[in-house]
C-alpha cells in the first residue's frame, strides 16, 4: 500500500474530494512528524505509539573497515504497536 492507495480508500469512505483527501493524508503525516520533532510522543489508540528517544554518543566501529569512530548522540524513532493491532494480526 502506498500513499495513493491510502488516499483512494479515504476518498471512497469520507466525504472529501481526492485532492482534499490527498492533502489531508499529507497533513496528518506532517503533524505527526512535527510533533515527534518537538520530542513529544504521538499515540494513536488502536494502532500504536510513536516515541522519540535520545541516544547518547558512543564509541563504535565501521563494520567494514574496523576503524573506531564516535557515533554522535542522536534521536531515534520507535513505534510500539498497540495490543489491539497485535491482536488483530494474530486473530
Amino acid at each position: 500500500m502506498t500513499k495513493s492507495d491510502l488516499v483512494e480508500v479515504i476518498y471512497e469512505r469520507v466525504g472529501l474530494s481526492r485532492k482534499e483527501a490527498a492533502q489531508a493524508v499529507d497533513n496528518v503525516l506532517e503533524i505527526i512528524k512535527d510533533t515527534l520533532r518537538r520530542g513529544e510522543k504521538v499515540k494513536i489508540s488502536g494502532f500504536g505509539t510513536f516515541v522519540v528517544s535520545r541516544k547518547r554518543a558512543r564509541r563504535g566501529r565501521n563494520p567494514q573497515t574496523g576503524t573506531p569512530l564516535i557515533i554522535d548522540s542522536r534521536c531515534v524513532l520507535s513505534f510500539k504497536a498497540s495490543d489491539i493491532l497485535k491482536e488483530r494480526l494474530c486473530g
Partner: peptide, 8 residues
C-alpha cells in the same frame, strides 16, 4: 479521515 486512515 483520521479514523479511516488508521483503520485502512
Amino acid at each position: 479521515l483520521v479514523s479511516v486512515m488508521f483503520e485502512a
